[in-house]
Design a protein around this nucleic acid. Sequence first.
DNA 1: GAGCACATGTAATTTGTTACATGATTCC
DNA 2: GGAATCATGTAACAAATTACATGTGCTC
Lengths: 179, 179
Amino acid sequence: MLQRSAQSGYAIKSAANTSMSFFWRASFSQIYPELATLERHGFVTRHDDPRGARVRSLYEITASGEAALLAWLRSANRAPPQFRDEGLLQLYFADALAPEEQLTLVKELRERVSIHREPISNGFGQTDQGDAKFPRILAQLEADTTAYIEQWFRRLEASLEDTCTAACSAGPDSNQKNE
Amino acid sequence: MLQRSAQSGYAIKSAANTSMSFFWRASFSQIYPELATLERHGFVTRHDDPRGARVRSLYEITASGEAALLAWLRSANRAPPQFRDEGLLQLYFADALAPEEQLTLVKELRERVSIHREPISNGFGQTDQGDAKFPRILAQLEADTTAYIEQWFRRLEASLEDTCTAACSAGPDSNQKNE
DNA sequence: GAGCACATGTAATTTGTTACATGATTCC
DNA sequence: GGAATCATGTAACAAATTACATGTGCTC
């Protein structure tokens, strides 16, 4: 993120809260120690840039930091994606619930997805919005998958409302597969 | 899981490895201590059920355990879903790469999704497969979303291959939104 | 002058992974 | 006989969250 513009730890956290939160999260207690570590390793430099009496540290990426960033971008040694969702875990065991309660759960999970579909900002200033292409692509991926899942849940809801005759137990989307 | 059938810690891990891995993961070092804790709290009972000389502990859910399970299934106090994907994080910063490298990354990420689309088993025995409806629904959700994301990446790949003229920078799916 | 956003960190705790250990059974 | 699967745990480590602490600047 420092490669795009020099920033404070607070600004990094703000960006992580908004544009990146779909696929990566970070807290202050991760960011500040990490910036200190990066500085020790020479990947970033820090200098004071107070706003009035309020202290502020601006960090900038170094040449060695840029090299490390590019090496990471090119490496295929990624950690496998992790997805963890207590709501889906509940749904997995929803056979133990009465049909009305099952429907309530599905409705709640669907609404939760809609709430997640808020206006997306890219976490950088207006000036950076134009030249960075991939943050916008990722925002689109989030919007599209979220919309898809919402529709999926809508169909599941409808199929559960039909008190489930013989054919409807395999999930709502099985009849419109793309192959 | 014990509510569906009495099981060993190992069997729970096997199920978690397959059918549930899309939205929840657990390791032996979480499962075994947790079973002990549940037993201390009276939610499950343990009895020895060796296979030959090989020791095995079978756990069964108690009435109090069933009550706790139902209370959890009905509670809306779920932890917010967490998604963490180093691949998407790389893509987010892919503006720093050359166009050919960007395309390579997108290809790798798309292929990774396909690999994930393996035949799905529900993690329970054949006998339980029939009566449990929601595990099948969740498996369908996984298959459908995975297929959707794969197609999304395919379109992104195509749009990046077109050397990106003016209009193609907002993501490949923006022209077929559902609203 | 109240409330919110900006700003920075540490400490404690919780959670999760990886490595370490061991051994029996079953199937090819 | 060898490999894969079944089976159970502990210890060490790594990662992440939550709580704790503090204070300024800006806007309504």
